[in-house]
Each structure stands twice: as C-alpha cells, then as structure tokens.
C-alpha cells in the first residue's frame, strides 16, 4: 500500500505545490521547465497532458489522500469537455472541500 494518510488539512498553497510535484513526476522535469504551471493551468490545453498521464496523476492524488477523497468518483461525473477544461484550481478547491467536510 502506498496510501499516505494526511493528518493535518493542507493549505491551498500546499495542495498546489503537491499537485505541481505530481505533474512533474508524471510528465518529467525537462518538460516542466518550459511550462509556467499556475492555478489556472488546464491539464490538456496548457500542460498538454494526455489521458493516460491524467490517469497517472489521478492515481498519485488518490494514493496521497487515500480514502479522504473520492477523486475518481469526482472525475467520473465529468464529460470529456469538462475533463479537457479541468484546471488545477478546480482540483485544489475539490480537495479543500473534502478536507473541510471531514
């Protein structure tokens, strides 16, 4: 099991940095250098991630936050256009909402 249970709720900034780390792990440091990752970055348009990379990213989010968030469930409610337009900020807000409703 590689699920790590986070005890303390993370701040918005901490979540953002964590997600940036995951993105770097998925697409590789050499590509991240050329990208200006911000909260407004969208996964497919700005970060140019394809669907299997988003799968890999989702798994990292899931294994980090464990059962505290239903990340796949949340994603499954979206259609393709919503997935394409998904921004980092949407995920940060979702994780924050899960943390506050614990």
């Amino acid at each position: 099991m590689d699920a790590i249970t986070t005890q303390q709720p993370l701040s918005s900034e901490q979540i953002f940095n964590l997600l940036k780390t995951f993105i770097t792990e998925v697409i590789g440091e050499e590509f991240v250098e050329d990208l200006d990752i911000s909260r407004e970055s969208s996964f497919t348009r700005d970060l140019e991630m394809d669907s299997i990379e988003i799968v890999s990213f989702s798994e990292k989010v899931k294994s980090h936050f464990g059962e505290h968030i239903d990340f796949t469930g949340w994603l499954s409610g979206m259609d393709l256009d919503q997935l394409i337009n998904l921004k980092l900020d949407d995920i940060i807000k979702y994780i924050e909402s899960c943390q506050s409703s614990k």
């Binding site: 394809d50 669907s51 799968v55 796949t72 499954s76 979206m78 997935l83």
Partner: peptide, 13 residues
C-alpha cells in the same frame, strides 16, 4: 490506445 478509454467514465459506473 490505453486503459484511459475506460478509466474516467465507464469503469466507475
């Protein structure tokens, strides 16, 4: 292709 064709919307259902 790859498993992502099912991952987001089909497998969860």
């Amino acid at each position: 292709s790859n498993l992502s064709v099912y991952y987001f919307n089909i497998a969860p259902v």
